[in-house]
């Protein structure tokens, strides 16, 4: 009986809404009541350091490429020891949608999300974070990883000195 079903369907929602009116709302009254955030909550982004204390970011541009709203811009540069780093790194939180794609793209685990969501402000320019605002003094969520110890090019260790590498070959050696 579709007609009966339709009629029933027209009245049922009224009952549901009426019943809900007398339930306790689930809203968290934010400033007075602190929300309990999940462990993997995605909010303000940081740039972490590797266990040796050096910047993890190698300015590979993958985060800016992954960013769907183009809020990351940066410029890579080369340090004296051949380490690639970000000369400047700008993240516009006024534009960021906190999707976390940059952290997924980051091959060196440098850019990470934190649960600090209280970013609102009145001046949009204050939401534009430069590298010094983003850089923190700890390793973030993965404390052990050091990109340059895995890469296979000599920056932290001498060439051929990383785990899983043999020392440089002698190219003028003709022995079999």
């Amino acid at each position: 009986m579709p007609l009966l079903r339709d009629i029933k369907g027209s009245f049922q929602p009224f009952w549901v809404t009426l019943r809900n009116m007398f339930r306790k709302p689930v809203t968290v009254q934010y400033p007075e009541q602190r929300p309990e955030l999940p462990e993997r909550y995605r909010a303000r982004l940081i740039l972490t350091r590797d266990p040796d204390g050096a910047e993890r970011c190698v300015a590979c541009y993958l985060c800016s490429a992954a960013c769907p709203v183009d809020c990351i811009s940066l410029q890579a540069a080369e340090a004296e020891d051949g380490r690639r780093y970000a000369a400047w790194f700008r993240l516009n939180f006024a534009r960021c949608i906190f999707c976390g794609l940059c952290t997924e793209a980051c091959p060196t685990l440098a850019i990470q999300v934190t649960a600090d969501f209280e970013l609102a402000g009145r001046d949009p320019l204050k939401l534009v974070y430069e590298k010094e605002d983003l850089l923190v003094d700890h390793c973030g969520r993965q404390p052990d990883y050091n990109f340059y110890r895995q890469t296979g090019i000599g920056v932290t260790a001498p060439r051929g000195g990383n785990p899983g590498e043999s020392p440089p070959v002698d190219v003028k050696d003709l022995l079999p």
Binding site: T17, N20, M21, K24, P25, V26, Q29
Partner: peptide, 10 residues
């Protein structure tokens, strides 16, 4: 307010 209460809000 009424709509909010129907949707479990304040």
């Amino acid at each position: 307010k009424i709509l909010a209460r129907m949707q479990l809000r304040y």
